[in-house]
C-alpha cells in the first residue's frame, strides 16, 4: 500500500509540467523513504532524475518498494484537473493497475478523484554514476532561463566556459558571435547572486533547445545549479525546498 499527501499540490503540478516535454513513459520508484524517477528522452541525449523525500509530504506511507509505470503525458492531463491550491494525495495498492490521484480544496469543499491507468515498462535498471564536478555555478533561475532563450535566437548551440573568475555563455552563427559573461556576484540580494565554484576550468558545447526545456523547472526554485566536468554530461539542478531535487543531465556536443 502506498499513500502520499502533499499539502502544496502546486509543486507536483510544476514538477509534471517540468518533465512532460522530455520524458514519455517512466517507471516511478516508490520506497519507504520517498519517490524517485529516472528516465532518458527518446533520443538518449537528456536524462531526468527526480528524488522526493518522504519528509516533504504531510503524510507518507509505503509499506514496500513498488514500481508504478506511468505515462507522463497522461499524468500531465490529469494534473490539469488540480487547482493551484489543491492538496494532492497519491494512492496505489500492491500490484495496483492504477494510481489514484485525489485533489482536495478544503476551502471550497471541492474534491476531484482520478484513477490513472498504469502501464508496464520493462526498462533495464540503469544508474547515474557518482561524478566529481570541477565546476559548479549557482545562478538565478530566471536569469539563466532568460540567457538561454535570448541566445537560442542567435544559435542552436551554446558554449559554456568556466574559470575561477567567470562563467561564459558564447554563441556563434550566421548572425555573428558573442558571449554573456557572469562574474562572481555575492550581492546582498541572495536571489541575484551568481556563485562560482571552479576547481578546474571546463569548456563544453550544448544544444540550447534542451536547456530551454529544462528551464521549465525554474518555477520550482529561485536558483539553478549547473554542474560541469570535462567530457561528462552537464547537470542542470533545481532544488525543491523541503521536498527534494529535480536534475537534468545533458550530453555535450562534440566537434569532430
Amino acid at each position: 500500500m502506498f499513500e502520499a499527501k502533499l499539502t502544496e499540490g502546486l509543486i507536483l503540478k510544476k514538477i509534471v509540467e517540468s518533465i512532460k516535454d522530455i520524458v514519455t513513459d517512466v517507471n516511478i520508484d516508490i520506497s519507504p523513504s520517498g519517490i524517485s524517477l529516472q528516465a532518458m528522452d527518446s533520443s538518449h541525449v537528456a536524462l531526468v532524475s527526480l528524488n522526493l523525500s518522504m519528509d516533504g509530504f504531510e503524510h507518507y506511507r509505503a509499506d514496500t518498494n513498488m514500481v508504478l509505470g506511468v505515462s507522463i503525458a497522461n499524468l500531465a492531463k490529469v494534473m490539469k484537473l488540480a487547482d493551484n491550491n489543491d492538496q494532492i494525495t497519491l494512492q496505489a495498492d500492491q500490484e495496483a493497475t492504477h494510481l489514484k490521484i485525489i485533489f482536495e480544496n478544503p476551502k471550497t469543499e471541492r474534491t476531484t478523484e482520478f484513477n490513472l491507468n498504469l502501464i508496464t515498462i520493462d526498462s533495464e535498471h540503469l544508474a547515474i554514476p557518482e561524478t566529481e564536478y570541477s565546476s559548479v555555478v549557482t545562478i538565478n533561475s530566471g536569469e539563466f532561463s532568460k540567457i538561454c532563450k535570448e541566445l537560442f535566437s542567435l544559435s542552436e548551440t551554446v558554449q559554456i566556459t568556466t574559470n575561477t573568475d567567470y562563467v561564459q555563455f558564447s554563441v556563434e552563427g550566421e548572425v555573428g558571435s558573442g558571449q554573456v559573461r557572469l562574474g562572481h556576484n555575492d550581492s546582498e540580494k541572495k536571489e541575484d547572486q551568481t556563485i562560482l565554484e571552479v576547481s578546474e576550468s571546463v569548456q563544453q558545447q550544448f544544444a540550447i533547445r534542451y536547456l530551454n526545456m529544462f528551464n521549465k523547472a525554474s518555477t520550482l526554485s529561485s536558483f539553478t545549479r549547473l554542474c560541469l566536468h570535462q567530457e561528462q554530461p552537464l547537470v542542470v539542478e533545481f532544488k525543491i525546498d523541503n521536498l527534494g531535487v529535480l536534475k537534468y543531465f545533458l550530453a555535450p556536443k562534440i566537434s569532430d
Binding site: S43, L126, P129, A251, K253, S255, D256
Partner: peptide
C-alpha cells in the same frame, strides 16, 4: 560541425 553525444556512455547499468 559538431555532433551530439548521447547519455548511453554515462547512464548505464553498473
Amino acid at each position: 560541425s559538431k555532433y551530439q553525444s548521447t547519455m548511453d556512455a554515462f547512464y548505464k547499468a553498473i
